[in-house]
């Protein structure tokens, strides 16, 4: 009687619990509680939290917004790919970036230490927005517009990689952000 694969004793719920288990439950349980509190607390004590500001939108509406934004603040064409406009919006402004097969448009130029309201959405499929080498990753949907306030804290050239599968050219899908001192 009483193996894992045979019926337990009649009144198994009255059997005492052995010390090894009790102590482990106390230790593990306390840690679980700590992790729960810490995850909530990070919303106040931490600087990296996901904004939940988001809107339902339409791909054509978002495409138009991105296009207008691009026209307004284009400063030059990108040196690596002259077909791509580089857009330098003023600090504090709304910045739009759109994923579509197979690119992230436009290329952005931001200033270090300044905050921007970055809007992310897709014009066709579900894409992954992966900022490298920071390694900050978001999911991007067609029809949903996410807004997140970013404050680049290091200067440099950042890549945006698509890291959710969006079609056979998925691995060629890239974008770029320059952060100036």
């Amino acid at each position: 009687m009483g193996y894992s694969f045979t019926a337990p004793d009649k009144n198994w719920a009255r059997e005492p619990i052995e010390r090894t288990e009790i102590l482990w439950i106390i230790i593990a349980g306390s840690w679980c509680l700590f992790m729960f509190v810490w995850m909530i607390a990070w919303h106040w004590i931490g600087n990296q939290n996901m904004n939940t500001e988001a809107y339902k939108t339409f791909t054509d509406v978002y495409a138009k917004k991105t296009e207008e934004f691009t026209k307004q603040y284009t400063v030059r064409q990108d040196a690596s790919d002259p077909s791509l406009p580089v857009v330098a919006p003023p600090p504090g402004s709304d910045v739009y970036i759109a994923g579509s097969i197979f690119q992230w448009r436009p290329v952005l130029e931001l200033q270090k230490g300044k905050s921007y309201r970055l809007h992310i959405s897709s014009l066709d499929y579900v894409h992954g927005f992966s900022l490298q080498p920071e390694n900050i990753n978001f999911q991007a949907y067609p029809g949903y517009e996410q807004v997140i306030t970013v404050t680049p804290n290091k200067a440099g050239t950042y890549g945006i990689v698509c890291n959710d599968y969006c079609g056979l050219g998925h691995h060629t899908m890239l974008g770029r952000i320059y952060v100036k001192e």
Binding site: A54, Y55, K56, T57, V61, Y62, Y144, E145
Partner: peptide
């Protein structure tokens, strides 16, 4: 699902 459904429309 309710959270998704209750998102406001973008301006």
């Amino acid at each position: 699902v309710m959270e998704v459904a209750s998102l406001p429309i973008a301006r």
